[in-house]
Design a protein around this nucleic acid. Structure first.
Length: 150
DNA sequence: GCTGTGCATGACCGC
DNA sequence: CGGTCATGCACAGCC
């Protein structure tokens, strides 16, 4: 599995090393369903953004950046719970996971994926995004999307 | 003070 | 109403 995050006209793809374990596969159907419900970015958008013409990208989810998401001091991205549980590795047993992400220009980034307890539930968050945010010039209202390349 | 961390709070929204 | 999540905020290090 790969993922793609886009800020404005650029993308990131998740490294294969976080390739899904079993529970991941089981959720594929649900994941695709979610993607279809949520996506606003078109296939053409993705083709243009993802420069490798061999890569076919399956959009998974998108998020419009809030003020908090684009705050350089926080440097963290809240990941919608359903998306996190559908597309990201299960970190129930851990309290965090370092994941490597690669953008379409070949740059590799490493983020920290974890969650906060909130009431009886969880808030999933990607941390350590400052350099990436600066590089891609994240602004509130920008769309971040995540996809899977085959 | 300033900054990062980690959780609390409450607005919002779907059910 | 209950869950989610944007933001508030207290606390701890560190200039």
């Amino acid at each position: 599995l790969h993922g793609v995050l886009k800020a404005r006209n650029r993308c990131l793809s998740l490294e294969p090393e976080i390739r899904a374990k079993e529970p991941y596969q089981e959720r594929t159907g649900q994941a695709l369903l979610e993607a279809q419900c949520w996506r606003r970015v078109t296939d053409l958008d993705l083709q243009q953004v993802f420069r490798n013409p061999k890569a076919t990208v399956t959009p998974l989810f998108e998020k419009i950046l809030s003020a908090s998401d684009a705050d350089l001091k926080l440097a963290r991205l809240i990941i919608p719970k359903r998306c996190a549980e559908a597309f990201f590795p299960d970190i129930s047993a851990l309290h965090g996971l370092r994941i490597k992400i690669q953008d379409t220009e070949g740059n590799e980034w490493e983020f920290h994926y974890r969650y906060w307890l909130n009431g009886g539930s969880r808030i999933y968050v990607l941390e350590g995004l400052r350099d990436y945010m600066v590089s891609k010039k994240w602004q509130p209202g920008d769309t971040v999307c995540n996809g899977r390349s085959k």
